[in-house]
Structures are given as structure tokens and as C-alpha cells.
Design a protein around this nucleic acid. Structure first.
Lengths: 209, 209
DNA sequence: AAAAATAGTTAACAGTGTTAAGTTATGCAA
DNA sequence: TTGCATAACTTAACACTGTTAACTATTTTT
């Protein structure tokens, strides 16, 4: 009983097993409560065993961060079926917010925390993020071809759009919006859902035709 | 020598003394390296003494977070001398970025981390943040009176502006922009300085007249 | 002078990431 | 089959973290 069937034949299996346990704890209890020791307990191995498969905690959290991008990428797949560029951009924004609200811990790992990116493959770049950003740039460019955002450099404009979305999501997730709702009437509708604010943003972008 | 002149007559003095030590360590070595024990060592007191003046670490980091708002508020004072609302809005943005880049650790404490806001005065609200946001709202309203941002609810629009600025600063500070500069030509100018991107944003806002 | 309140300390608990050294089991050559 | 090297895993420890209970020494009040 205590010592379970740990006949995971290949190394890769256990490596994945560790990651799954980490993911489970991460989703259930958040980042804070996901320690090496708890991951070890979850898979019924000694804490040090984990270091045979992952260099350090950074590497685990980086792997989780990649998992997050898989989830986001998966939800972005539907965008291929949205013909009109601006509609695609809007849908992208909605999916982004949706992802952030549904997976706040993953969002933090992917876009807020610096831990996953530091000490991991020296200045090798941030592939996942760059890829996601490039699809945004492409969409912006497509929008420009239909008359939107004229006279803007696509990359810079994409960064602005992303920043707005990220700022919105980050402030919401870190409770900075909710903590501001003392002025009851003033900000009530804002932090209710981001949907309302997002629609105003769309309206704003629409004026840039 | 070892036991220095610890004749800080009043309690408040030592409380401030602790905060100054915390601030020093915080500025020198960042948040990670600012532990209760190190603060205690800095002021040559026992770690537990700190708990006689601050309930827990949250309270200290909250006090630091307030210090940050004092610095930002100080730099915002010059805005009173900027007559034209839109010019004032632009100046505000520049000062915000300037503050974020000059005091990244404070910025993180004030707008990124949730630690300073949780477990501190239950749902009592975020006075500092709310106050700062209100001055933004006022400026937006003033802009609207001179023809800008018509048909937008001031609060919502202010949140959008803040989100963009925050997104930009947060991504920059957390190195998410720099880690994306693998596509050398594409993003070179972007993460160089935020100034360029900010100017594009101003240009964008100007079109909403 | 005795009692009470104040200020600060030591020692400990329970937790963290991480590493060096030791153990056990596995597979392979002689 | 025996002997041995290597891989897989564990135990014990280090140096930290925030935090608390219990203790001491000093000052103030009665």
C-alpha cells in the first residue's frame, strides 16, 4: 500500500508524473502552496527524487508555464474560423480575458511572475510568449489591410493592445480593482466584470478606422 | 559597539526606524531579500522585537507600499502646473512610466503584488490607489470638456488608460518584453525604451478627439 | 520596598529550496 | 552464477523563512 506500484518504466514517465502532480497542486491550492516537498508527497517519492528529473524549482514552474500556453493556444484555435480580422481581434481579446479569469494562477505564471523566465535557458528568449504575440501582430496587420489603425507600426500597436488587455487582467486578478470599490457608485460596474470595460475598448478601437 | 545607543525614546521612533531599515534593504536588494530577520539584523534588534511594532510582515510591506505612493504622489505634484488637460494627461503618463522604471520594486509592491492588500484592514479598500485613480478620472473628465474622448464614460475610459500604462510597465519590469527580443528586428525598438511605445499611445489617444 | 507594566530576548515550531552522502536495486560482463 | 558498476532513490542535513510562547531584565507605579 504505502509503497505503491512505482514501476513507471521510463524516466520520461516519472518526469511527466511529477509535472502532473505539480499541476494538480497548483490548480487546487495555487502557487504558494505548491512546494517541492508537497509535490513529492503527492507522488509518494522523496523530495530529492524530484531533483533527478528537474534541475530546480524554476524548471518545474517553467514547465507549468508551458502547460498554460498550451491551454491558451488550444482556446485560440477557434480564431482560425473567424474571417474578418477585426472580429478576430475582438474574439482574441475575449478569449484572452476568459482565459485569465478562468485560470488566474496560470495567467500569473505566464505573464506576471518572472520566476519562470529567469535562470532558464540563458537569454534564449521567451518562445511561447513571442509566438502568441506574433499571432496578435499578424491579426493587427490584417486589420490594417482592411482600413483599421492606419499610420501605426503594427508591432508597436500590437504591444499597446496587449498591454491594455494584460493591464486589465493583471489588475483584476491581483484584486487591485476589487480593492478600489470603496467609492461604491464610481467603480461598481467596472470591476463587476471586465466585459463592460472590454466593450468600451472595442468601441475605442473601432474609432481608429 | 554591539549594543548601540538604542535610546529611541518613543515607540513611534523605533517603528519608523524599523520601516527605514526595511526600506533600505528593500531598495538595495529587492523584495526577496527583505526578511524580518534581516531587518532585525539591520537595526540590531532581535527579530521578535519587530512583532512588537508590526503585526506581521504584511503590515510592513503595506507600510512600504504607502511609502511608494508618497514618492509617486510627490512626482505628480508638478501636474498642478500643467494647464491643458490633455497635456496634463500626457505628463501624467510620462511620470508614471518614469516612476515605474526608476522604482521597479516599489512599483511591484504598489500595483503588482497582492500581499500588501490582503489581510490588511479587511475590505477597507485601497485608499492610496483609489486616490491616484481619482486624479486620473478628473483629468480624463477635464479632457472630455475640451473635446476629447467623447461618448465614453470617464471611469471606464480612465481604467482603460491606466490598464494600458500598467500593462506596459508591468510587462517591462517583469522582463517579459526583454525576453521577447529574440526576433531582433521586430521588437528591437519596443523594449528599448517605453518612450517610443508611449508616444504611439499618445498619438492614438489624440485621434479620439 | 513591593507590585505591575514595559521592552526586549532566547528558543522553538513548522515550513521552504537544495545538496552531500549513503543505500538499495538493477542490468550486464566475466 | 557470480561480481560489479551504474542507476534510482532515500536519509540527513544546511541555511534559510515567518511566527509564537515563554522568559528576563528594566522601568514605572503604588
Amino acid at each position: 500500500m504505502g509503497i505503491k506500484e512505482r514501476k513507471l518504466k521510463h524516466k520520461e514517465d516519472l518526469k511527466q508524473h511529477i509535472l502532473n502532480a505539480a499541476k494538480k497542486l497548483f490548480l487546487e491550492n495555487g502557487y504558494e502552496a505548491t512546494s517541492i516537498r508537497k509535490i513529492a508527497a503527492e507522488i509518494e517519492f522523496s523530495p530529492t527524487t524530484i531533483y533527478l528529473y528537474y534541475k530546480d524549482k524554476h524548471e518545474i514552474v517553467h514547465a507549468l508555464h508551458e502547460e498554460g500556453f498550451k491551454i491558451l493556444g488550444e482556446s485560440f484555435k477557434v480564431l482560425a474560423h473567424v474571417e474578418h480580422p477585426f472580429e478576430r481581434l475582438k474574439a482574441m481579446g475575449r478569449l484572452y480575458i476568459q482565459f485569465a479569469l478562468a485560470n488566474p494562477d496560470f495567467y500569473e505564471l505566464m505573464f506576471v511572475m518572472k520566476e519562470p523566465l529567469e535562470h532558464i535557458d540563458e537569454d534564449c528568449g521567451w518562445e511561447e510568449g513571442t509566438a502568441a504575440f506574433n499571432t496578435l501582430v499578424d491579426t493587427i496587420k490584417a486589420c490594417q489591410e482592411t482600413g483599421y489603425f492606419k499610420n501605426f507600426e503594427a508591432n508597436v500597436f500590437a504591444l499597446l493592445v496587449w498591454s491594455t488587455m494584460h493591464g486589465l487582467c493583471a489588475l483584476k486578478i491581483n484584486n487591485h480593482l476589487d480593492h478600489m470599490v470603496t467609492n461604491k457608485k464610481v467603480l461598481e460596474n467596472i470591476s463587476d466584470g471586465l466585459a463592460h470595460t472590454f466593450e468600451a475598448y472595442v468601441q475605442m478601437l473601432e474609432r481608429l478606422k
